[in-house]
Design a protein around this nucleic acid. Structure first.
Lengths: 332, 332
DNA sequence: GACATCACGGTAATCGTTTACATCCCCGGC
DNA sequence: GCCGGGGATGTAAACGATTACCGTGATGTC
């Protein structure tokens, strides 16, 4: 069927060992022989069988990734960055989704391990119930948690410094003249939600006027709507700045404010978090904290690469500082 | 290192052949033996080596997919649907992106074939220059083009019936009272752009008042802006219905109309195509033609599955009828 | 000229399964 | 009682690379 290295070797007049050496790296082979092997391979249109190579060399040159979903533009962009980064190193990417179900997630991780991926990248879908599977995986291959992480740490992690991001947003709002603030975020069911909430609480003292309104729901547009309505109940006490836990919530808030004729940023300023593609398309365009996705992906892949090349601490935790992107939903 | 089937067989007191049979399918093994093998496997925490199985059985239980990009929400949703469908059949998904570069695409396809994927799904990034690589791939494994296709056909394809979709949009606009129409789409550089344009031209006779304004650019928000500005140059001749080639363009058009104080759907009705997640978040929410992504994915995977199970025509072309989703950017 | 060193190349073992083939046993039909 | 058939099992040969190990000849050094 397919042409094998044996036939290439035969045509080149060398042994399979030499052919193999010539095709991969080519060290320890006389240039003349190397040439002949390469030529033979081209003439026969030889396609190396990566499966056989993987079996013998015990390395598949592929990494597995598990994310909650891909249709979420945030994860999509993340996966894209990881794919590009992996491809650059000649690594294939095996993609799975957990659909926010720890059981599914565990199954996917196991399937990836059966396929003998060299390393794993996972966005744990639950800060508690993802633990067992992810730690088990970490026993077998280098594993890095991306974006979200397990409660209480454990294993490598690469993510954004949420607290610094929220702090930047708060500083910006205060500098823009906001005297009262509110936070609309998600219940701290995952590590990001927790960190952003902590960030808000930590930054609160910067705003002298008052920062005590904290509304927690989930990371959805609907929650943004509802929270905004709640803040609108008493028009007089409407805060001058609303810090949102992510962009989706912020879009919901913006929309509800627009419906009720509240001027943004005139009467209220709004900030988001993530900088999803639609943030700049909102009306008005949303000031937000941009996740440096490319950097996150690069860092994650690099972490795995160094772990594979040998040693390095298995508990590397990298928090990358995000960047505030100022748009029209706030005053400079 | 890892426990092998040999050790499982030993512990169960049977030969490796029997162990293998028991673990995969279990046909032709006495129930008692099957039980013992399964128990031994569980006790030893046996993890089958899919690489070895793949080498011997010449099937990797994995499909490769190449899309132009994942950060495009349309492709992201498509990939997600394919992943789910593949996972259901126990197939892994190897993901690659072409970044709209036929060279990159060809390289990715080759890499996937080296990895011996059982089948391929590709969204060709160019209707001409993708041909060689995709047809070459099709020689080796079942390959299906998804969404986009090569010029002039060739190979299997699963996509949406663009012409029917545009027709539905036009009918809807005419039924809603539009007397004049315009089309804002992309130059026909890919098969979808072509089909949508053809669809508009085919449906034109339905609108007695006039349908001759056809503006072609690319599938971007900016083009939507520019096209809308051009239509606004002569306010009096502003068409009563604007059919857009995709949602992104439509969002651009909507925005420009809003900036110029044109009422939607009062003065002008607008339709999109695709139903990306943000379509319903637009202001007003966008009436659009929904791509049945789940169905497309399922059909693509099914096509490959039947091809793998043996025979079936290699030239299956499936066009699925899309559904019109009516929202507030048009009158019912 | 003897010997250590070195670069290169070949032979064959190996990775961990699946599966072709042979064997064995049991059962039913004649 | 013999034979054919079929199901369960074992033996061993694949699958197609990589690589440990060893042999060979060239080279350098004393």
């Amino acid at each position: 069927m397919s042409v094998t290295i044996r036939e290439v070797a035969e045509r080149a007049g060398v042994s399979v060992a030499t052919a193999s050496r010539a095709l991969s790296g080519g060290r320890g082979v006389r240039p003349a022989n190397r040439e002949r092997v390469l030529r033979a391979a081209k003439e026969l249109d030889y396609e190396p069988n990566a499966v056989a190579a993987a079996l013998r060399s015990r390395t598949t040159n592929s990494v597995g990734i598990v994310v909650p979903r891909i249709s979420n533009p945030f994860f999509a962009t993340l996966v894209e960055a990881v794919e590009r980064e992996a491809a650059r190193g000649g690594q294939g990417l095996l993609l799975s989704t957990s659909r926010y179900d720890p059981e599914v997630e565990a199954g996917q991780l196991r399937a990836l391990l059966d396929r003998r991926v060299d390393a794993l990248i996972a966005v744990p879908c639950h800060s508690e119930r993802s633990r067992a599977a992810i730690e088990a995986a970490g026993q077998r291959v280098p594993t890095v948690q991306l974006d979200l992480c397990l409660d209480g740490g454990g294993g490598s992690w690469v993510g954004v410094d949420s607290e610094a991001g929220i702090l930047a947003a708060v500083e910006h709002l205060v500098a823009g003249g906001a005297r009262t603030l509110a936070y609309v975020g998600s219940e701290p069911t995952d590590s990001s939600a927790q960190a952003r909430l902590d960030g808000y609480r930590g930054a609160a003292p910067l705003c002298p006027g008052g920062t005590d309104r904290v509304l927690l729901g989930d990371f959805s547009l609907e929650w943004g709507h509802r929270a905004a309505r709640r803040l609108l109940e008493n028009r007089r006490e409407l805060p001058e700045g609303i810090v949102c836990g992510n962009d989706t919530i912020a879009l919901g808030v913006l929309r509800e404010l627009a419906r009720n004729g509240v001027e943004v940023p005139g009467r209220v300023m709004v900030t988001g978090f993530d900088d999803i593609p639609f943030a700049e398309l909102a009306e008005p365009p949303l000031t937000t904290v941009r996740q440096p996705l490319e950097q996150l992906a690069a860092e994650a892949v690099r972490t795995l690469a160094t772990r594979l090349r040998g040693g390095e601490e298995p508990h590397r935790r990298v928090a990358i500082a995000p960047e505030l992107v100022v748009r029209a939903s706030t005053r400079a």
